[in-house]
Amino acid sequence: MLLAMASRLTNEVTDAAPDLLLGTARHRTMLFPRSRTTPRTARDFVAATLTEWGETSRLDDMRLCTSELVTNAVLHGAPVGQLVLVRVESLDKELRIEVHDSGKNRPTQRVPEESAVDGRGLLIVAATADGWGVKERTGPGKCVWAAFNHITEPQGATS
């Protein structure tokens, strides 16, 4: 059952951006178990991928958003025994983190009570990322994403 879910998630995510021309983007995808350690290992996966690609200008922001999105997927999205898929994508104009799970519920941004100890994840993502949203997936579940505009060096800037 676990392998079937893994292959469905992997096959479905390859269609994440069907309008891109070949060679205009890079991406890397990894499946994670639904466990309390998944947010940390997903952050590490995203950081390692972005570092390898030389995309570190917003690394801390992307790690934070990854943590929040994956935590939501683990706590509220992925049913027990299912997997969470994390995709890192570098497009021409933006970097994108996608978190896919097979849960039915769509996340909603809310304003928690001041004394609440949780419920701020999507507020953090909205304040940190340049954009975020939820999209349907082929098959079960949804994809929650956060996008970060590429930061380019001004012409003539030197280090």
Score class of each variant (00 low, 15 high):
Leu9Trp: 04
Arg28Pro: 06
Arg106Asp: 08
Ser90Gly: 10
Leu22Asn: 04
Val111Phe: 14
Val86Gly: 01
Ser90His: 06
Ala16Tyr: 03
Asp19Cys: 12
Gly131Thr: 08
Glu114His: 10
Glu94Met: 13
Ala48Asn: 07
Ser67Gln: 11
Ser7Cys: 14
Glu12Gln: 13
Asp44Cys: 01
Pro140Gln: 10
Gln109Asn: 14
Ala25Trp: 10
Arg8Ile: 08
Glu89His: 13
Thr152Asp: 11
Leu22Lys: 03
Thr71Gln: 11
Ser57Val: 08
Gly141Ala: 00
Leu75Ser: 07
Leu31Trp: 02
Trp145Lys: 01
Ser90Cys: 03
Asn149Ser: 02
Glu52Tyr: 05
Thr49Glu: 00
Ile124Val: 15
Val99Met: 04
Ser102Lys: 06
Ala48Tyr: 01
Ala47Arg: 10
Leu122Ala: 09
Gly156Leu: 10
Glu153Phe: 03
Ala16Pro: 05
Asp60Val: 15
Thr10Trp: 04
Phe148Gln: 06
Ile151Tyr: 07
Leu2Met: 11
Pro154Met: 07
Ala42Gln: 07
Gly131Trp: 05
Glu68Ile: 10
Thr37Ala: 12
Ala73Asp: 06
Glu113Thr: 13
Ala17Pro: 10
Gln155Leu: 06
Arg26Asn: 08
Gly131Cys: 12
Leu3His: 09
Phe32Trp: 05
Lys104Ile: 15
Ser115Gln: 08
Arg110Ala: 07
Val88Gly: 02
Phe45His: 04
Arg28Ala: 07
Ala47Met: 05
Asp15Phe: 05
Lys104Trp: 11
Asn105His: 15
Arg34Asp: 04
Asn72Val: 00
Gly23Phe: 11
